[in-house]
Computed example of a mutant assay.
Amino acid sequence: MRLPPYADLLGLVAETGDDGAPVLMMPFATQVLGRPGFLHGGAISGLMEMAAIVALHAALESEGGGEIKPINVTVDFMRGGRDKETRSRGVVTRLGTRVANVEATAWQDDPAKPIAAARMNYLIVRS
């Protein structure tokens, strides 16, 4: 799986979830620090966007591939991200001919207790 260049800036590492789906892990570092001891909201949002892109590219590969362009992103922050590893997974909720809907969550200790959630829409240009 090839990650976008922004993933390198965040230090993202691709992992495989229990169900075989890709999960991205962002280690805590000064580059993702917001207020002391907490992750910056932009870093959390970036992590979820990268997870959504990975999930969408995986879904498109099974249909012959394609390019994607973001239409909009909505992020809900639920609690502060602390100074520890943070993980995110994207789920394609609708893969249409021209538009895809993707959801992503970010968590630290327990996937059932997310620190943030995002909904994204992408324009698809099929290969």
Rank of each mutant, 00 (worst) to 15 (best):
G41E: 13
D109K: 10
A58L: 12
P36Q: 14
P5H: 05
N121V: 09
H57M: 14
G81C: 07
F38R: 10
V75G: 03
R35V: 10
V125R: 15
N121L: 11
L12F: 03
S88T: 09
F28P: 04
P4F: 00
L33C: 11
E15H: 14
P22E: 14
R35P: 06
Y6Q: 05
T30H: 14
V54I: 12
P22M: 10
A117L: 09
E67T: 12
L47V: 08
A112M: 09
R87N: 04
T105A: 12
K84I: 07
F28K: 07
L60C: 06
A14F: 02
T93N: 05
A21F: 05
T105G: 03
Q108S: 09
L9M: 08
P111D: 13
E61R: 12
D83R: 13
S88H: 03
R126V: 00
G20L: 11
R126S: 00
N101G: 07
R82T: 13
R82Y: 05
E63A: 11
R126T: 00
T86V: 13
A7K: 00
D110S: 06
D76Q: 15
D8F: 04
E85A: 15
G90W: 01
T93Y: 05
R35G: 04
D76N: 15
T93L: 07
P114F: 08
I115G: 03
T93W: 03
A29K: 12
P111F: 08
M120V: 09
L123V: 08
R2L: 07
A117M: 14
I44C: 06
G64N: 12
A43L: 06
V75Y: 06
G80H: 10
N72M: 08
G90R: 00
N72P: 01
M1D: 03
T16M: 06
P111W: 06
I68G: 01
T30L: 14
P27Y: 08
G37F: 13
L60W: 04
G66Y: 00
E15T: 10
M48V: 07
I115R: 05
N121I: 03
P5G: 06
M25R: 15
S88G: 15
E85H: 14
P36V: 13
Q31C: 10
I124N: 00
E63S: 10
P27H: 11
N121D: 12
L47P: 00
E63Q: 14
W107P: 01
V23R: 01
L47S: 02
I71G: 09
W107H: 03
S88K: 03
G41T: 13
D8M: 07
L33A: 11
N72E: 15
E15S: 08
A55E: 04
L95F: 04
R87A: 03
D109M: 07
L9Y: 02
E61F: 04
A7G: 03
K69F: 14
L10E: 00
P114A: 12
R87L: 12
P27L: 09
L123W: 13
T86N: 05
G42C: 13
F77G: 02
R87T: 04
K69T: 15
P5F: 05
G20I: 14
V75S: 06
P22R: 09
V125G: 09
G17A: 15
R82A: 14
V92G: 05
E67F: 08
L47K: 00
P111N: 13
E85W: 04
V32E: 02
M50W: 00
A21P: 00
L3Q: 02
T16Q: 12
A51W: 03
L12M: 09
S62I: 13
D110A: 09
V91G: 02
